[in-house]
Nucleic acid binder design. Structure first.
Lengths: 183, 183
DNA sequence: CGAAACATGTAACTTGTTACATGATTAT
DNA sequence: ATAATCATGTAACAAGTTACATGTTTCG
């Protein structure tokens, strides 16, 4: 139940239409909670029905016309409640780790190229985060809100750093492997 | 589409019944791909229908009786195919990061306690992984298969290390915050 | 026998994904 | 006018979650 709260956060930061939200999910918010436009429209409908948000424009626009939303007091209260409520961390779920474990059984043919590709992608993502950090969080004078947002970005940077290091190490192991185990 | 392949990997490592698989998913395999018994039974049925696995026992057991499965050649081939096939990494999706971002907007009341709790949980998980490493991967003499499995475990250790460090840093930031932003 | 533990399974629901449909606005 | 883009939406499906149902074996 996190998507509605991601949307509430985004709308509090700035009232938006569905498509604008979709674009923001492709950028900042989507860096730790991704969503497609179909999910967003579905959820906007629910949030409006629950009285957490409302449309901005006085006239009800028809299909195809832009429709912007803002958060109502009940929505802000729900977000505060959710943010403070205790939630268990989700166990790790990673396809590449699973694939390596499978490769230990059925052989490593073909997987090395994808490890390289992932290394590239994670390096790109890391560079993107570092760019954002340079632009949005220059040294000195951070407001408390900025320090929290910086902390979140830092997690992204650290995680991408981890992946680049781990993938590099994995590829070194592959270089060392005498031959494929059982192929 | 990873759960069937997680099950194939587990069954290749050792033929098992549904409940045995469930227990193994609570331990080693679940450390990077979790699943409940309902998911597992559903998926075992599909895998059998597709001809990737078959029951071991000659007699068809009835409901309530143990039913063990083994992987057929087609299943092994499918696992090899999947493991080698290129797949994009999934974007990061983390509730705690989203909660912090929300807290930057609606206030940080209440979230600090859960950060502490998460720090504890991640420390426990890290200790568990390190225990497994000591037990299963003593220094020296690793077979190629073991090196791959060790690499996977290492990712778990590194990720838990990251979270403990990041949460420690987050809590330091909270100690520094003058007062809650906007509450 | 009765209770506990073992073992498999169903059903209903929520969330996420993929493909497609439709109307409105803008630029050539 | 028509093509491209903007914008909202539907439908069907896949995957994951939660609650419950049912039969079997073991042990006191």
């Amino acid at each position: 139940m996190s998507l509605p709260h991601a949307i509430l956060t985004a709308l509090l930061e700035k009232p938006s239409s569905g498509l604008e939200l979709t674009r923001r999910f492709d950028r900042s918010i989507g860096y730790f909670w991704s969503a497609t436009h179909q999910q967003i429209y579905r959820e906007l409908g629910k949030l409006e029905a629950e009285g957490f948000i409302r449309t901005l424009a006085a006239e009800q626009p028809t299909r195809g016309q832009k429709k912007s939303y803002e958060v109502l007091p009940a929505g802000r209260a729900e977000l505060a409640r959710w943010s403070a409520a205790s939630q268990d961390p989700k166990p790790l779920r990673d396809v590449m780790l699973l694939r390596l474990r499978a490769a230990a059984v059925v052989g490593t043919d073909g997987i090395e190229a994808d490890l390289r590709r992932h290394l590239d992608l994670h390096r790109q993502q890391l560079a993107e985060y570092e760019e954002i950090e340079k632009r949005d969080f220059p040294p000195g004078k951070d407001s408390p809100e900025d320090r929290l947002r910086h902390l979140v970005l830092q997690a992204g940077i650290d995680l991408e750093t981890f992946w680049t290091q781990w993938l590099t190490r994995a590829l070194e192991e592959f270089a060392d492997l005498p031959t494929d185990p059982r192929r």
